[in-house]
């Protein structure tokens, strides 16, 4: 079927088969390789992207489901000259990135949380990540970049 949606700010139109997942669409059709397949069944979160601002496991969502919606991936973050988003910067600065495999998923998940709740408590951060962290060895460090004091100093208000 033919679907229209916004991908990282650009209007796109694409023909997708009914069984194609959003992850497959992003990786294969649009060659956006930041979202990774760690499990393929919704348990690891390395495929997390935002759909209308909500974090979703793109491996579980059918591509057709984004018709008329806005999709944001890790590639959509940052400034036009390749400047890092404050969230990306915070992950780097606080040593929350190790191998980097799930980092895009982590960052998108964090972004969704901050959109909904700009000043999360540490407990809220930890709960928000419950579904997304699987094997990440650095996960305890991940809450650090999201601690309000750390992140919002550099964050533009939106």
């Amino acid at each position: 079927m033919l679907i229209n949606f916004k991908l990282n700010g650009d209007a796109v139109r694409v023909d997708v088969a009914g069984h194609v997942t959003l992850l497959e669409l992003l990786r294969e059709e649009f060659e956006l390789l930041g979202a990774k397949e760690g499990c393929g069944y919704g348990e690891c979160g390395s495929c997390t992207v935002l759909v209308d601002g909500q974090a979703v496991n793109s491996c579980l969502m059918l591509a057709a489901g984004v018709n008329g919606k806005e999709v944001e991936t890790i590639e959509g973050l940052g400034g036009p000259q390749g400047e890092l988003d404050p969230l990306q910067q915070a992950f780097l600065q606080h040593g929350a990135v190790q191998c980097g495999f799930c980092t895009p998923g982590m960052i998108m998940s964090a972004r969704a949380l901050l959109k909904e709740n700009p000043y999360p408590t540490e407990e809220e951060i930890r709960r928000a990540w419950r579904v997304t962290c699987a094997a990440v060895p650095a996960m305890p460090k991940l809450s650090r970049p999201l601690r309000p004091s750390a992140i919002f100093r550099g964050r533009k208000s939106k």
Binding site: E75, L77, L84, Q93, V97, G100, P104, I107
Partner: peptide
């Protein structure tokens, strides 16, 4: 910060 971090945080 790790030297290959920018590649990692940008996907």
């Amino acid at each position: 910060p790790i030297v290959d971090g920018k590649e990692k945080v940008t996907g």
